[in-house]
Amino acid sequence: MSEVAEYTRKDFASEQEVRWCPGCGDYSILAQVQRVMPEICIETNQKKEDIVFISGIGCSSRFPYYMDNFGFHTIHGRAPTIASGLKLSRPNLQVWVVTGDGDALSIGGNHLIHALRRNVDLKILLFNNQIYGLTKGQYSPTSKVGKKTKSSPLGTLERPLNPVHLAIASEATFIARAIATEGTQMRDVLLQAAKHKGSAIIEIFQNCNVFNDGTFDAFAAKKNQLENTVYLQHGEPVTFGKDNEKGICIRTDHGALEPYVVNVADVDKSSILVHDEQSPNAALAYLLAQMDVPEFPVPLGVFRKINRPSYDELLEKQVKTAIEERGPGDLNKYMRSAETWTVS
């Protein structure tokens, strides 16, 4: 095994001047990624030059310019395809995709679902700010119904997509959520995503302070986080609040699974939902992802983490097995494997 270099955060910061609006949530994400990279390199036994950032178009997609890694700022919505091609042909690289709600869920929706479905070993960071920032403020596929924007002055008529739901339906093997400004939690999920073998997607709530300021405040503002978010941890009861005094229980009413909030003190401890990120059944993750303020805390952390061979791994194996079984391809011979005749 090759020696793992010791890196510091600075090794991952490029010389490019960062050009997001002052106060943008993207700064915080960049800082967390740069901070956790040295640890990721150790934990995944990767060198800096083997880690690649690929992005699409949008504010978020400027990200690769600010990392001192190999980076490719591609075209709108297509980052997962370019990342897939890179990962399939160079399986030893660690490939990150940086995308936004418009990039990943609107113009690039098809690529996202298929990259996830195939379980390509990609780490996808979806910066969700519920708005089009770069084009100066139109609604996005995650904007709330009725949202007034430049392109919806009377309010949007469209229901938003829930990225976690989409990821579940697309059979992603690692699904997590984080708040851009909540560093500790974000570094935790970033590290877990990096260590996961297969498609990993992290929805990051990112405030666009210019065009959609405060859209996540109800749960993401520091003062609201304890009461209105719950950090999911595998094998632990789903509890939240200042002293973890509240919890989530599940009841089946009229045949439907329904979560409800309880005071931990009022119920039998065993009735509180215990998070199982590895459950082969996606129902729990789906149910959790449905919870939203004001009735519920917004779940953060890892929703789902399941083991399935990745596409790149399987493809590599097909190549290896084919070579073992048939011997390395000999084109001269192969071209002559059809019916041939000789003219003398």
Binding site: L86, P328, L331, Y334
Partner: peptide, 28 residues
Amino acid sequence: LRHFGIKTAQAEDEISAVGMAIGAAYGG
């Protein structure tokens, strides 16, 4: 022709197919 070390992928659409090829080219 996997035994030639050739990797092929049936993409979800035409755009993805060219994107994958570009990604592969970027990787050498």
